[in-house]
Structure formats: C-alpha cells, structure tokens
Amino acid sequence: MKTTRRSLVLTGAALAFVAGIGLTAQPAPAQAEYPEKPISYIIPFGPGGESDITARLQQPFFKEKFGQDLVISYKPGGGGAVGWATLNTLKGDGYTMMGVNLPHIVLQPQQKDVGYKTDDITMLYWFHYTPDAIVVTDDSPFKTLQDLIKHAKENPGKVIFSGSGKGTAPHLAQVRFDKLAGVKTTYVPFKGTGASVAALMGKQVSAAMAFTTVAANYEKTRLLAVAMEKRHPRFPDVPTFKELGMDIVSGAYRGIAVPKSTPEPVRQKLTAMIKAVNEDPAFRKKMEEGGFAVVDYAHGKSADDFLSSFAKSVTASAKEAGLLK
C-alpha cells in the first residue's frame, strides 16, 4: 500500500508541474467592450500550411489594434471540409471564426456530399490570394513563357507540371493554360505546394504550376508568368498571363467566415476589425513581401458578388477538367 500512496503523491506532483506550464499563458485582463476575450480562429487545415502562416501573420496586428489575442486552433481533415461542415454548429457569439479557402468551398460540395453547401458559409471577408504562377528553376532552359509554350507545341504531353493536388487552383490553372495556349501538358499532383516545389528542384518535372509565394520563399526559382490583373509588386519583371495574351487571373483565395448564428451587428464589427488589419500598411507590406496579393471583398454585396463570379468561372474550369459532371 505504501508504494501506492507514494505514486499517488507523485501523480499529484506531476499534475501540478503540468499545470504550472500553463500559468504563463494566461489571457490579458478583460476589457469592457467587444472583444472582451480572445477570439478563437479555427484553421480547417493542419499547422505549418499557408493558411496557418497567413493567420499567424495577422495575429500580432490584431492583438496590437484590439488588445485581444487571436487564438489559432486547427481542425484539419477532408481538405478543409470537416471544418466547414461544423462551422454552423459553433457558437455565434462573435468569438469564433474560421478560415475559408477558394476554390475549395465552391468545388467540394459539387463533387460529393461533404456536409455543407457553399451557401451555408457566412463570409465576412476575402482578404488575400496567392496568385497562380508558373515556376521554374533558375537554371531552366525556359527563359520565358514563350520558350515553354514553343517546347510544349513541339512535344505534346512532354512538358510536365507539378502542382498541389487535383481540383485545386494550380490544377485548374494548368487546364486553362493548356486551352488558352493551345498546348497539351501533363499535370502531376503532389501533396501540397512544398512537395511540388521539391519535385521541381529535384528536376522530376519541367515546371511547377504553383504560386507567387513560392518564388518569394525559395531561392533558385524563377517565375515565368503570374495569373494577376497587374504585375506583382514584389516581382516587377515577371509578366502577367494577360500581357502574354491569355486571360488567366486566378489563385487560391483566403477569407474568414463566422457561424450562421452570429448576429448581424457582430458580423459588422468583426468585419471592420479584419478590414483594419488587412488595410494596415505594415501588414500589407509583409504580405506582399511574402508573395501574396491582398484584396478587400468585405461582408455584404462586395463579398457576395466576388464569390458568385468566382464560383461561375471555377465551376466552368472544373467541368472542363473533368472534375465535375
């Protein structure tokens, strides 16, 4: 019996130690006005991905402006679907919000029953996107996009793009590129942008259909063209597809949504707060340096119009790619 008691005392000590770790993470004293406590920010993907990183970039700016923490947690699974399917079951008190991605929330519900519909999601803001871009290694024989197109015309199917997954922004961009440039290329899906860039650097593929962020994060890579309306400020020498005669403006958009039960005044307040972070010049500069393109489609007509026009074009591309019936 003695050993039992001893181990019980030790268990207590261990719990005390474990609890002690937490004392440092206490929230700041509450304020009288909204937000009174930290806001939970759920990312429907795992930690370390681009959705996580951009949320982390927003974190300090939010704290500085509104005195409350954004507490990031993760609910990964089903390419984000698991998180979005639970969004409306969460409490709509203004202290819960969730990251949202395009084209995911448009395509997933059309492919299979994933537990939510696009219209179920109450958008507050679309704040940035990572524009699609064709990336090559710095020693690639393709100096310009024309080089690549010429090669692809002479060797149908032999130009190989790596990209992140299927039915994703890069995949749809590749399908559209093939159509507009009048070529046939091969698309190889990888698990995430990082793996598709590793395949590019390892010379497994001719080019990566990836994002502008790749060129910002990886040395020894070059962009051939970006899918933006205007050139990216970080890469003033890289032409847009539009300049080259192809109407491709696309990418992976990110925004934020709240549970449906969140009252309209709270939605408005939260929207204004996110807007303030997104319009902060220092924040914008950080995002642009990272290769992102900042946009502002706020809750209401602006976000709704954007989503419906995006949905129309992305659904058409997905049908062309054979991903939707």
Binding site: G48, D52, I53, R56, L57, A198, M201, Y218, G290
Partner: peptide, 18 residues
C-alpha cells in the same frame, strides 16, 4: 532548401517565415 523534412519542421518553417 525551405522544404520541411518532417511535419514539425513545417510548423517551425512557418514560424520562421512569420
């Protein structure tokens, strides 16, 4: 290379980017 070798490395890489 900036390519995470393991899942925890991906998180550390993200923290470095921030």
């Amino acid at each position: 290379l900036g390519i995470p070798g393991t899942p925890p490395d991906a998180v550390i890489l993200g923290a470095l980017l921030v």
